[in-house]
């Protein structure tokens, strides 16, 4: 069981050779691959993080813009409503004024015509009363 012989140094040499070969074909290339992948992942992560922060900044900016636009639209709306009210009041007043003036004009006309009618009536009254007198008293007396 415990018989040592030349197997021992041969095995040791074989092992060292195996270590050398594996270092060339296993440890070195795969370690390089692992390290490169680590670096790649880390780089991408940093990049992605940067992009994320950029995107968040953009979102914030846009949100600010949206809030501004909303405020602006609100103020425009209020302005328009106030304008409309103003115009409304103005037009109403104008219309009322016009109506008033037209009514006054009409009343004046009526008055004028009334006066004219009264005048012509008075003249006719004079003529008629004369005729009545002539008929009652005779033409000689009236004169």
């Amino acid at each position: 069981m415990f018989d040592f012989d030349a197997t021992l140094p041969i095995m040791a040499l074989q092992f060292l050779l195996l270590t050398y070969i594996l270092n060339l074909v296993f440890y070195k290339p795969l370690t390089k691959a692992l390290d490169e992948r680590d670096a790649y992942v880390r780089e991408n992560e940093v990049d992605a993080r940067e992009r994320l922060s950029k995107a968040e900044k953009l979102v914030k900016e846009y949100e600010l813009q949206i809030a501004g636009a909303r405020r602006e639209s609100q103020s425009i709306l209020e302005q328009a409503q106030a304008d409309a009210k103003n115009i409304n009041a103005q037009k109403t007043a104008e219309a009322q004024q016009q109506v008033q003036s037209e009514r006054e004009k009409a009343a004046q006309e009526i008055q004028q015509q009334k006066e004219a009618a009264m005048q012509s009536l008075e003249q006719q009254v004079d003529a008629l009363s004369r005729q009545i007198l002539e008929k009652l008293l005779g033409a000689e007396l009236v004169r």
């Binding site: 069981m1 415990f2 018989d3 040592f4 012989d5 197997t7 021992l8 140094p9 095995m11 040791a12 092992f15 060292l16």
Partner: peptide, 10 residues
């Protein structure tokens, strides 16, 4: 035993 001793000595 040769193998294990070789590895241990290394």
């Amino acid at each position: 035993i040769n193998t294990t001793v070789a590895l241990a000595l290394l």
